[in-house]
């Protein structure tokens, strides 16, 4: 073997080493299939807007102007990823509010009265994240339209209320439209975001604020109106 051949071999090896190193250090993105979302906010059901109440305000009389604290968890699955992302989401939440029950004369009783709601929602959504991923704009506007079902129950003391033979529990159907904007946290710590993806499979994380217009009264039927107009805030993780 000539010395020229050996020299060529060594040169080829030296060239190959950086190539190998480069292959190892290039970050890889895991596939993005869905998202998990945690959110919370004030929820004030529009009970007092029911026409049959003729302007009376049982919710306000019991709870004042206070809202329920609503906590929700949502799972999304992406079915389209191109110019933005679209898919379906399912969410479940829980909200409750306590206050003193009232005596006939309007003064506070020792018993606690409570309203508890468990909103479930199936929605379709679209989020315009093309600009975020393509041009680095960290804001992602989005919208959702969903079918809502809200089991509810009212308690006094430790038991569900019963008035005139009717038990204070049930469920209401309705719909909700939501618009919001997310802030892509990846831009603050890109390296951490990459590690989050490679270690846990979380592609992107966002903080968001959204406004929901919900009509939950059996689509205009009589009875309790659990619809609301509310702001919610939370954290979303794409995986």
């Amino acid at each position: 073997m000539s010395s020229t051949a050996v020299g060529l071999g060594v040169a080829a090896l030296l060239l190959a080493v950086p190539a190998v190193a480069q292959e190892v250090t290039i970050p890889t993105r895991s596939p993005r299939t869905g998202a998990i979302i945690f959110r919370g906010g004030g929820y004030q059901p529009r009970i007092d807007t029911e026409k049959a109440l003729e302007g009376k305000t049982p919710y306000k009389d019991t709870f004042g102007d206070a809202s329920l604290l609503l906590i929700e968890l949502e799972f999304q699955r992406f079915f389209y990823q191109g110019i933005g992302t679209a898919g379906l989401g399912l969410s479940a939440g829980y909200a409750e509010k306590y206050a003193n029950a009232l005596l006939e004369d309007g003064t506070q009783a020792a018993d606690k009265a409570a309203l508890k709601v468990l909103p479930l929602q199936l929605n379709g959504f679209y989020k315009f994240d093309y600009a975020a991923f393509k041009w680095g704009v960290p804001l992602v506007p989005y919208a959702k339209l969903g079918l809502v079902y809200s089991p509810w129950w009212m308690t006094k003391g430790s038991a569900t209320e019963v008035v005139e033979g009717s038990k204070a529990s049930g469920g209401k159907w309705g719909y909700a439209a939501t618009a919001g904007v997310s802030f892509l946290l990846d831009v603050l710590e890109p390296r951490f975001a990459r590690d989050f993806d490679s270690d846990l499979g979380v592609n992107h994380s966002y903080l968001f604020a959204e406004y929901t217009y919900a009509e939950v009264n059996n689509f205009g039927g009589k009875g309790l109106n659990l619809g609301s107009r509310r702001w919610m805030f939370g954290l979303a993780l794409d995986y």
Partner: peptide, 17 residues
């Protein structure tokens, strides 16, 4: 004492669960 449902029914609300 009256809870929310008592107050609601007294006020004429039509929900009966």
């Amino acid at each position: 004492s009256n809870g929310l449902f008592d107050a609601y029914v007294d006020a004429g609300g039509q929900e009966r669960g």
